[in-house]
């Protein structure tokens, strides 16, 4: 299953809830303001790092670029473009947007 998170983790609890419900082997894609969580020095980075043992974390590149965060992405986070976003949706049997 693909979990899509679009909220800043320092503003809302969407990322936390998504990670709590992401079963082993599922994927979490950070888009829009959620991409800040995947950057070095963010207080949310610890949550991302500990989640990586069980789930693959992706971040949407154009959203990182637009926020000046591309050079700060955590190791292990895979950066995808919109085409990659589409692939993630089709490769997983379902998706949930943590609005």
């Amino acid at each position: 299953m693909l979990h899509i998170v679009n909220k800043s983790a320092t503003e809302r609890n969407s990322l936390e809830s998504a990670l709590r419900m992401a079963t082993k082997g599922s994927a979490v894609l950070l888009i829009e303001d959620a991409v800040y969580a995947a950057t070095q020095g963010s207080v949310a980075a610890a949550k991302i790092k500990s989640a990586m043992a069980d789930v693959q974390i992706y971040a949407l590149g154009p959203d990182l670029d637009a926020r000046g965060m591309s050079s700060r992405v955590l190791d292990g986070v895979k950066v995808v473009d919109y085409g990659g976003f589409v692939d993630l949706v089709t490769e997983h049997n379902s998706c949930q947007s943590w609005l």
Partner: peptide, 14 residues
């Protein structure tokens, strides 16, 4: 985001 997702999905043949 929805529009860019939709456009890219179509470009990829979906």
């Amino acid at each position: 985001t929805a529009y860019l997702f939709a456009r890219n999905a179509i470009e990829k043949g979906h």
